[in-house]
């Protein structure tokens, strides 16, 4: 059995007020729509990607509305 852990940034759209801090803190994971609300990359990134994980953590901590969270996805593969 092999376990792979990956992460994805998710937003609570009710909390989000479009401050846009996430774009500054994690530009690799976020684009903004025309009204300034974040569109988060839906593709999960692997745990080994330390750069992305760091950016994601910064975005989660830096959101003034606390609307962001990091979703952990554990995949178990039979070998």
């Amino acid at each position: 059995m092999r376990r792979t852990v990956s992460f994805r940034l998710v937003v609570d759209p009710i909390r989000c007020d479009g401050f846009g801090h996430c774009l500054e803190l994690a530009p690799e994971l976020v684009t903004l729509d025309e009204w300034g609300y974040p569109i988060l990359h839906s593709e999960p990134f692997p745990q080994s990607d330390r750069e992305l994980l760091r950016s994601a953590h910064l975005a989660v901590r830096g959101c003034p509305r606390q609307a962001l969270s990091l979703q952990k996805i554990t995949n178990v593969q039979e070998r």
Binding site: P13, I14, C16, D17, G18, D33, W35, Y37
Partner: peptide, 9 residues
């Protein structure tokens, strides 16, 4: 009007 994409979109 709770979520931006709905409230503006």
């Amino acid at each position: 009007r709770q979520c931006g994409p709905c409230a503006f979109g």
